[in-house]
Amino acid sequence: MSKSIAREFAKGLWSEIPPFRLVLGLCPVLAVTMSVENGIGMGLATTFVLVGSNFLVSLLRNVIPPKIRIACFIIIIATFVTMVEFIMQAYVYPLYLKLGIFIPLIVVNCVVLGRAEAFACKNPILPSLADGLGMGLGFTLSLSLIGAFREVLGNGTFLGLQVFGDAFVPFGVMVKAPGAFVTLGLLLAFMNLVPVKK
């Protein structure tokens, strides 16, 4: 039993890591990963929502009538998203200002709804929690990685600290939308080179 829970957790970090293996939830990936800090913040906010919604969906899985399950999932997810909004405003206000409308947009992140539909509504609470936590942390990892690439190349900094000397001219395009698409595409290709053990 504990072995399978560990497996549910670990799969989110490598074999099914979103958004590389599961190509879902691209909007926040593309839109907010201008810097590592944004990546981590967005990733953790999404993790909170994922864990919360997976827990509640799994808890209520026998109560929710199948016909209206999507509507119920959406209510649950939106509740957690609004909670995150409050919490971020109360404790990390500058980050909240930077992420702006992308916090409410977690509600339409397909990773969250996807996990509720594909996993949590069919599995007991503990594996669902593990799944949510794993997926969330995997997502955070990916976002920070993309954020790191874009920040280092596009701004010459890492977490706000200068990494190159003055001679380095940042390619500004990396922190704009095209940089996001290209970075994600190339990282995805790189991930494809590394096979997943079945």
Binding site: I64, P65, I68, C72, I75, I76
Partner: peptide, 8 residues
């Protein structure tokens, strides 16, 4: 359905 949605 109605009850679940309302309560939720």
């Amino acid at each position: 359905m109605v009850v679940v949605l309302t309560v939720l």
